[in-house]
Every structure is written in C-alpha cells, then in structure tokens.
Design a protein around this nucleic acid. Sequence first.
RNA 1: GCCGAGAUGGCGGAACUGGUAGACGCACUGGACUCAAAAUCCAGCGAGGCUUAACACCUCGUGCGGGUUCGAUUCCCGCUCUCGGCACCA
Length: 838
Amino acid sequence: MKYDFTAIEKKWQKFWEDNKTYRVDMTLLENKLYCLVMFLYPSADKLHIGHWYNFGPTDTWARFKLLNGFNVFEPMGYDAFGLPAENYAIKTGVHPQDSTDKNIADIREQLKTMGAMYDFDHEVDTSKPEYYRWTQWVFLQLYKKGLAYRANAPVNWCPKDQTVLANEQVVDGICERCGTPVVRKAMTQWFFRITAYADALLEGLDRIDWPERTKLMQKNWIGRSEGVEIEFRIADSDSRISVFTTRPDTLFGATYVVLAPEHPLVREVTTDECKAKVNEYVDFVAHENEIERTSTTKEKTGVPTGAFAVNPINGEKIPIWIADYVLGTYGTGAVMAVPAHDERDFEFAVKYSLPIRVVVQPRDGKLKEPLEAAFVDEGLGVSSGPFTGMESTKVWDGIANELEKKGLGRRKVNYRIRDWLLSRQRYWGAPIPIIHCESCGEVPVDEKDLPVLLPYDVEFKPTGESPLARSEKFVNVHCPRCGKPAKRDVDTMDTFVDSSWYFLRYMTPHLDSAPFDKDLVSQWLPVDKYVGGAEHATMHLLYARFIIKALKDGGYLNFDEPFQSLVHQGTITNQGAKMSKSRGNVVNPDQFVQKYGGDTFRMFLMFMGPYNEGGDWSDKGITGVFRFLNRVFELYEAEAGRVEKSETEHLSIKDFNRAEQDVYRKINQLMKKVTEDTENFRFNTAIAAMMEFLNYYTDTLAGEQVVSSAGSAGPMESQAKIDGSVKNFVLRSFNILLSPFAPHISEELNVMIGGKPSIFRNKRWVQFDVDAIVEDTATVVIQVNGKIRSKLVVPVDSDEQRVKSLAAEEPNVKKYLDGKQIVKAVVVRNRLVNFVVK
RNA sequence: GCCGAGAUGGCGGAACUGGUAGACGCACUGGACUCAAAAUCCAGCGAGGCUUAACACCUCGUGCGGGUUCGAUUCCCGCUCUCGGCACCA
C-alpha cells in the first residue's frame, strides 16, 4: 500500500474532532502550559505560507510539550476588526461583517488541514459584540484611571482619499492606498497615556525571556533620556524659554537658542524687524508635509527672531532662532544650540555663520580649530568657568547642581515614546463607549450598558468624518447622567486595543459576566510561549504590555507581563519581497497540501532553515521531505508484521550483538538530539537527524537481508541480525519523535505497530538512555603543523601517550615527521593530535 | 546617519565550549529497473592538481584585509555588502 496522505489526514482529523482529543481541562493546572501564536487577520486571501510558517512549527512545539506531560492550551482566534475589510467594503460594497464572517468560516477549514491542536470551541472573534463589549470595558477601566483622554492632535490625513489614516497605512509619508503624500491635520483624538508607563515598560523588559533585539527595539522606541531642563531668561523681558538638554556639561558652549516654529513663544519674542520673515517661515514650515519636515537628509533651515536669551550660567546674551530641525513635540520644543558639540547645531551654525565655541576637549590632545565636525564625545571641560579642567561627567553634575541651586534648571527625564492615539475615524472597529453631553461633558457609558453596538446599516464610504456620525440611530442618545439629548462618540478604536487583551479571553470566550475569569487567568497567565512576527515589536507587543500593566494596577490581574517567553518566526519572502496581495506574490499553501499533504508541508517549512530566520520562499526541496515520509511509511509497513505488537518491551541490553548495540546507540542519540532541538525551536536540525537515522537504519536492515538471504554462517550473520524486540523499540521511539512534526502519519503508524490511538492522549515522550549514547570508539585527527595528515580510530579515552605514538607511526604522518624536529605535540582527548615540527 | 542581525558548494542549510568544514535535503551526472517514461533504488557530486590499475596523496577554500593561536567558519581589529529597525528625540 502506498502512503495515502489524503486519506490518512482526513481520517485523523475526523478522529481528533470526534474524540475531542485536544480539549483542555482548564481546571487542571498542574504542568499548565499556555502556548500562543499571534491570532490572525481573517482577510480574503485566507491562510498564506506565512501563517503556516507561524502556526505549524509552533504546533509542533506545543505537541512536543504535550507529550512531555504538559497540559497544553493552544488556542486560535481572529483579529477581525480592521481596515482591510473596510477598504474591501468601500471597493465592492460587501459589508465588512459579511466578508469577515465568510473569511473566518473558510479559514477555519483551512486551519484544520494543518493538523494543529486548536480547540475551536475556544475561538475568539474580536468583531463580535460578546468580545468587543469587553474591549469597551477595557477602555473604560483606563478612562477611570485617567489613562484615556481626549486632545487635539495632528492626524495623518490623505487629501485624495479624504480619510484619516492609521500610522500603519502611512509608508514613508505616503498613503499606502493611493500614493498621495500624507498631510498633518489637527483633530480631536483619543489617547491612552502609555507614557505614564514608560519606566514600567522599560523595567519589565529585564524580567522576560524575549529576543534581545526585540527588547532593544522597545528600549529605543521608549527612548528614555536623562537630562536637565534649563531656563533661559529672554533679554529685556520677563518671559523665559525652557530648553531640554542631555548635555548640560556643554552649557558654556551654547551660542544660540532655537525654538520649534510652532513654539508658543515665537510670536511673543519676535522683534518687529523680524516679524515678516518669521511669519513667512512659520507658514512655510506648516506647509511642509511629513516627509519634508522629518527628512534627515534635507538641509536645515531657520530664521532669527531678533530676540536674545541670557545664558543662565554666564549671563551671556545669545540670539534666539527658529528652525525646522527642532521638533515641537519633544522635550520643551526648544533647544540650546552648542555647535561645537552637536552635529545638528554644527551644521546649522556653519550654514548661518553662528559662533562655534569649544568647551570640551578630548582627553588625549586638542581639537583642530576651526572645527571640521562637532566633537560629541565626552572629555575635559575648557572655557567653562569654574568647571574648566574637569571630566565631562563632573561638569555635567556640577552645572546641573548649580542650576538647581539657583532655581534655573532641574534634572528631568524625557521619553521618545508618545501617547497612543487610539481613535480611528473608521467604521469597522469597536465604538468608543463615551457620550458627549452639552451640560455634563464627556460621560462614560455605564458598564452595564455595554456593549455599545456597532450598527450594521451604515454608509461607510469615506468623506472625512467618522462613518458612525452619519447614523442618527447611533449618534443620538440621552445623557446617562442628566437625561438630556446627547451624542455618542463616533470614533472607533484602533484594532491594537482589541489585540491587547485577547489572550485573557481565550480561557472563557463566551463568558457573559466579565471580560475574563479572574481565577483561570491568574492561573494560566502569563503566556508561557508566545510566537509571532518581529514586525510587532514596537506595536502590538508594546501595547499589550501596557494594557496588562494598566489592568494589573486596576486590580484585575496578578501579573504585569503578559508574555513570559517570546519567539519570532522569520519572515518568508517571495523573490525577495514580503508577500502581500498588492504585490501579487502571495503563495497559497493549499496547493502543496493537496499535492503532498499537510504533514509534508508543515514539516518542509520546518526543514527549510532556522525558524527565526525565515527566508525566501521556494518549494524546491519539498520533495525531500515527502520522500522521507514515504520511506518512513514503507519501513513501518514492511516491519509492522515482524515486530512484537506489545507496548511493554523490556530490552536486555547485555545480550545485544554488535549491530543491535549500534542501533540502540543511534536511536538513543536521536532521542537526545530531537528532544533538545525541538525544545529550542531548532526544527531543521531535528528533522535532519531523523532523516539521517532513517538512512542509517534502512541500510542496516538491508545489510541484514543480504546476510540472511545469503545464508552464510559465521560472525557476519550474528552481527547483522537485529532482534524483534530492538526493532520494536526503534519503531515505537522513532514514531514518537516524529509525531509532533507529522501528527497525522504518526497516528497511523502508531496503529500499524499495534499502538492505541491517540498518541496525543497517551502523552508519552521518549526517555533516552544516557549510558547508551556514549560512543565506544573515537576518530582522532592527526595533524602536522595544523594540517591534517591522517586519522586514527581508537577506543574512547585511550591513553594519550599511546595515541601519540600510534599517530607518529602512521605512514602519511611519518613522511612529514622524518628529518624534522618535533617541537611540541598537542593532544586533545578523543579528538586530535597535532605535531609541531621544525 | 545611528542601532541590531547576518554573509559557508549550483541552491536551502549543518558544524558542541577554537579541534575532521560542507551533516541533512534539493538540483545535477552516471548506472539499475522499464518497450519507454514517471516513481523507486545504487553510485558520484567545493575548486584545482598529481597519479590514474586502484587505494591514496597534494594545494587552495567559510564576504574582503590584517591579527591572536600548535590550530580560526568560530576569538580580536579594520573594511565591503545584504537584511531588519529608527529617522534631526537635543
């Protein structure tokens, strides 16, 4: 019989479903293990290779842990709100809810062909009222704690599409959909105060097992910097300009002050003579679009205001400029410029002939003046009043102390991270549960009145305002506080809010009385292993950490880091580009499942290379995995009749002949290798080792055939003959090793050799025999002056002197030693001998 | 520009703490089976040289240039290129 993967896979998928094989008893907490993949966006493209690459190997790992006795919970769900469904609706008129529901139904069927351990009774769907009701609840908890607020803020606006864009839709300052440059437009928006958690988010990184580069990305994104906020008095005025600097040690070198063009003091300080130029410039900057404004390659521009500021450390009067290289949104929106020690100030000062004054010299030598570039390192203070001659760090503290004493400055920590703008002027999302009342102002919807239902019948074509604003039924309500007519907030929430807490909902997806079961969540969380793409490093992974911390502070959770251990699968590209529908290079996994089966396909994805590296897609090589499974199937089919069909098999190692010892050692080595590799997501090498073993084992059996058919007596026969008990052991062990990788075929093989289904109910991983792994011979490499001249097979741990003299006797070694003087001989036990000769 | 990761045969990739580079697989070549093909099986497969009766043997070889070491894909210094992130954050 041939390996009929289609029949086998169908059969076992049905078996698993009928027997609820993967149902998890949530109340069994011993050895609990929460294995999570980032849930999926149910697009019309359905599952692509990238999903399989994320989910398949993770399922292998989860099965491996299950067989090792863990009570593994591996759920799947749908991040169903979001822009693509809405854009699709705008284009085709199909309502997002209809297309989403259909996509989910299709995708669920596709998921089943993968053979993963999902219990579909635990699915979550963020677009269903039973879910988003609680997303709104999350919003209200943050609102109650003052962590959600409304403010006027610039948003990304596409003038062509007449719509607000999410940050993810703006690629290099261009609207992802139509290619028009995005402009900034001020609108009143909702924010989460993630900045209040900046330090907590940094601190938590030290406690979690995440890829270092991801932690570093978050660290950089948060961008904590310690500095001093310094007050510059404005000459002939009572006003002051506050600047933030991380280099107060260079304060003596400040030769001008720069305000951001949108700084509130600009109008106040500008002198009459400069007014025209300044207004013109402010206007010019306001019309720059996002790319122009933030481009680092663009030449800096600016104009003087005519006013002067007084340096608080030495009373010097220095000019105040405005320039586009100072951001209104960071620090105080104003900087002190120290051209000698800051690259940007240097560039600007050179362009506008502003003075450049060196106040830090390198410890070894002097800077050549005029400077060719800013000297930004630390060193020794010069021309710095009482601080001259001191180390930069000393000057830093000295000046900071001095300013604090005089009340002209204070130490301050600034962050690069901004508050999370979460409102979207879009339809397909969870409505923000706020009511605006003329007399009461902002009124949160009462929790018992949740969910605020998203109306189905809404015109969602973009016009620049939120589609919900056009639904009178939705908008017009009575104020819950005073009863007067009021209006609902018409914005919806960023889908990253939905995905910031979904993993709490999986335990009890249909719970009606609360967002999650506090007891279950406190016992199953944090997630033990989270697997998903690195592209979420500074978005979803940061947002979720923040929401969890906020909920913990609200008293709802007993942990503050949601994902204890994180793994990123690599990205699968196609011809070097990310797969996406717009590029038309998406590869559909179904064709491979049809041609080779789900087992082969998921195994091939694991065999391609290191899991965290991904790579460019090519189906070259899938035949190798397919052949492997075919050969495995044939081996079991051929051997099934010849092995003992009992599960309790005691091996009497003492009686092993040479061939049996070899086989036993190799299978034990394999157990160790596959166990360690799978644990650490090194699937490719685990599979290679299984292939290697299969090659070895079929060769061995072939040798046995030759000997027995020849019928010759003597030592050869006794060496090659392998007892049924050993074969039985090999087949059982090998199948267990294979089962997390190719679950369908393994269930089938298990039955063929007399096992009871299901492997994943029996939960028995292999236990390797430590003593059996050790080789009894070693190949020692013999080098002369580091070049390999011969090899020697010796018993393990042979006497060094003996190995050395044996080595020297090797003909090809002797050749190189003759007539030379042996200066030294390096002997590494069981590995090599290196003669150093002159 | 800054931060991070990486570069190994025709291709994907192996190589434990510095110790046989190229495991495993693909592709390719030759052979067996077949009327033929597919599938399968066997053998070969980094480059070059020498001897080819054969086993061997020799030189070079892990992006480039140096260094440390008896010995470097592995460690150090300096480059080049590729990928990912950030984008004037003072």
